[in-house]
């Protein structure tokens, strides 16, 4: 235990630096994923044929081992070693949890509510904005949480393709047989995941419409 602390104190600046890189990679990946996959999820919720294709692709990508995906990207000329490959891989992995959850979230909205809204003269844009999207928030958010936690873990593996993040502590620790180093990396990665999950949990409470939180009292 004291060895671990000692290691951390002695290497504080590099650990901090790695943590920062780790954070920024996840952050960029998640932002890009949100901007990309939420619209895709909405789009496929309105076109069943497209949904089948897109969800198939998302599932296939999700089945590729992350190390293999990183390795493949490194061989692509414009990507190479480092951030671009890592970012692309994370965004692609996020496709499955995010797109599926957005799609499901919209699909499970009570069709009677949609029918009533349509019958009152709301157009499809209004129905999406005022009904489907807000009601899909809880399911969508579950997808975002999974994505963030998952990305935190996969980002560590990007150390193999030159990302200087907490994963590096683990990979180097392994080769040097340095237990303190491995533990520091592992603990911090886990802490980041927990941190994100907690923050997002708080966000979720704010974003879920009030009417959905109320359980029937009578």
């Amino acid at each position: 235990m004291s060895d671990l602390l000692k290691y951390m104190v002695e290497n504080a600046s590099i650990i901090l630096n790695y943590t920062e890189t780790h954070f920024s990679l996840i952050f960029s990946a998640v932002i890009i994923s949100l901007l990309l996959w939420i619209p895709v999820g909405i789009l496929i919720s309105r076109n069943e044929k497209l949904a089948g294709i897109v969800l198939g692709i998302a599932n296939t990508i999700f089945c590729i081992p992350s190390l293999a995906l990183f390795a493949v990207f490194v061989t692509v000329p414009f990507l190479g070693l480092g951030r671009s490959s890592a970012l692309l891989a994370l965004v692609l992995y996020a496709m499955m949890p995010m797109v599926i959850n957005v799609y499901q979230g919209i699909k499970i909205v009570d069709k009677n509510v949609i029918e009533a809204a349509k019958g009152m003269g709301m157009n499809s844009g209004q129905i999406l904005k005022e009904i489907q999207f807000p009601l899909a928030v809880p399911v969508m958010f579950a997808g975002v949480r999974i994505t963030v936690v998952m990305s935190t873990g996969i980002a560590a593996i990007a150390a193999y393709i030159g990302e200087r993040n907490l994963g590096r502590l683990i990979t180097e620790g392994l080769t040097r047989n340095n237990i303190e180093m491995i533990l520091t990396g592992a603990i911090l990665v886990a802490l980041i995941a927990i941190f994100f999950d907690t923050v997002l949990g708080a966000f979720e409470k704010m974003l879920v419409p009030k009417g959905l939180k109320i359980r029937r009292s009578n």
Partner: peptide, 21 residues
């Protein structure tokens, strides 16, 4: 169609109240 529906009252069995409103 939307203008038409706005001018006609419509009630269904399941009511379809917006649960978040």
């Amino acid at each position: 169609p939307n203008q038409l529906r706005m001018s006609i009252g419509y009630v269904i069995q399941q009511i379809g109240l917006l649960p978040h409103r």
